[in-house]
């Protein structure tokens, strides 16, 4: 599994792994999208850009997840897919850009799951393992 949900009494942990950091970030976003709404019920009809930055890969992971949550409200859309288009390290500052694919919210058709308030630094982990990268944080539900 590229992402897994971890047990937490009040909230939920979201862990994403990938051979490369790009993949782990992308899969983390996919894991977040699937928590909000059943992706199968969302058509990828429109593209919305997102970007995030952080002082290290962990902060970047949290910032990217939060940018996705903001995009849901700002555009009034649910998303099915995410593509990471840029990952850069500029002067010890990490920047990620990507595109979300989805459509305007239609509560008749979209199988809504639960609102995620924010990604937090709780349980935050960003480490390089033998097989690649592992990212993890607690999402506030």
């Amino acid at each position: 599994m590229p992402y897994v949900y971890l047990d937490h009494e009040a909230d939920i942990g979201l862990e994403a792994t990938g051979e490369r950091l790009e993949e782990a970030l992308r899969d983390g976003v996919q894991g977040l999208l699937a928590l909000l709404v059943d992706p199968e019920t969302v058509e990828p009809r429109e593209a919305v850009p997102v970007q995030a930055s952080g002082d290290d890969p962990g902060a970047l992971y949290v910032a990217l997840l939060n940018a996705v949550l903001a995009a849901v409200d700002l555009h009034g859309m649910f998303f099915r897919d995410f593509e990471l288009t840029r990952l850069d390290r500029v002067d010890d500052h990490w920047v990620a850009e990507g595109t979300l694919y989805g459509e305007p919210i239609d509560l008749e058709r979209h199988a809504v799951e639960i609102e995620v308030k924010a990604a937090t630094y709780g349980g935050l982990l960003a480490e390089q393992t033998d097989t690649g990268w592992r990212l993890r944080c607690v999402l506030d539900l």
Partner: peptide, 16 residues
């Protein structure tokens, strides 16, 4: 609601 969530999100790296 979202306003509070975003304030937390904005101020986490700021306070770090």
């Amino acid at each position: 609601r979202a306003l509070g969530h975003q304030i937390g999100t904005d101020y986490l790296p700021f306070l770090e």
